[in-house]
Design a protein around this nucleic acid. Structure first.
Lengths: 171, 171
DNA sequence: CCGAAACCTTTGACATTTCAAATATTGCTC
DNA sequence: GAGCAATATTTGAAATGTCAAAGGTTTCGG
């Protein structure tokens, strides 16, 4: 590839750095994206086959599971990183399946609060347990120390990204 | 899980390990997912504002960019990790924008090959350069050594996941 | 060659996604 | 207390996403 001239080791390092190191961030991003897609597809397939649920529904129910008082739709939107308009449809479908109820609090009639039904809690409990197992299985060949390290380092990435957004900020 | 008995400091470590360590994989997954969503949203916003393109379109064009002979739709589907049916519509829209052409080779009329037009190549070239810059900017606060390490370790995760799929395998 | 199996793409039904515009309600100001 | 900005959700258009079923084409065995 590169035409090194006099070259000892240093030059090679520089050249390599200018080539291989050039697109580090891009390559990390592409790998993160494909890995996330891969896991998502597997989780979606299993949620569908074993529980008849979709991944966004699982996500939304996860947020409601720990909030027995329910959450406003706007808050759900922030936590799931899903747009407002999207939450409307998701909650509608979950409601028609009897997994969630919507109610408007007395004080403020602009607000809609979504809450899991007992049926929803039961289903989510089963899904959550299975889901955790799937993830453990899929990552079974990765050293636990690496997993912990990844968790921390990806946190650093997330933090950097959050500080360099053109628009809104999250989390 | 394990009932340690005598216990001083060791017990705490065990307990902590049994609690905090319990859902390592799950927590890594949740963090990967939210980080990927965050970056995706930013990239999508910028692609839209600066080039009027969508992320899946960018993805698909990226695959065609390096294959001057074009790719069969099935191959595109595998590489982009998008279903066959989805590729059909994606390519249709790109074709109506004059960025891609579809043609059927002489030998096998089952096959459709998609190929970038000159206009498509030009647009993608500009998008790719900008895209790489955006990623570098977003990850600017992360140590380059960490980025390289993440790339490798996420590779290990991907590999493990690939070996524990219930269905098809990728990459 | 004929029919069955295999292969490639499209189609159709639905769910999710984003964005922008429209609605509805509150709260605040004057 | 009338009007207006701010807040919260819904709606609508267009694109993407999955899956399963249907359409053509090839290929291969007999």
């Amino acid at each position: 590839m590169a035409e090194a001239d006099s070259g000892t080791v240093d030059l090679e390092i520089i050249v390599q750095d200018a080539q291989e190191g050039k697109k580090r961030e891009l390559r990390l991003w592409l790998r993160m994206l494909s890995t996330t897609k891969l896991i998502s597809q597997e989780v979606r397939r299993r949620l569908r086959n074993e529980f008849g649920a979709t991944l966004p529904q699982f996500d939304l129910m996860a947020q409601l599971y720990r909030e027995s008082d329910g959450l406003r739709l706007g808050e759900l939107s922030k936590r799931t990183m899903v747009t407002n308009g999207n939450v409307t449809g998701l909650v509608e479908r979950l409601e028609s399946d009897g997994l969630v109820v919507r109610e408007t609090p007395d004080g403020d009639r602009r607000v809609t609060v979504a809450k899991l039904t007992p049926k929803g809690e039961e289903l989510f409990g089963a899904m959550a347990a299975a889901h955790e197992g799937w993830l453990r299985d899929m990552m079974a060949d990765v050293d636990p120390a690496i997993i912990a390290e990844l968790w921390a380092d990806i946190g650093a990435v997330k933090s950097s990204v959050n500080d360099h957004l053109s628009g809104a900020a999250f989390d």
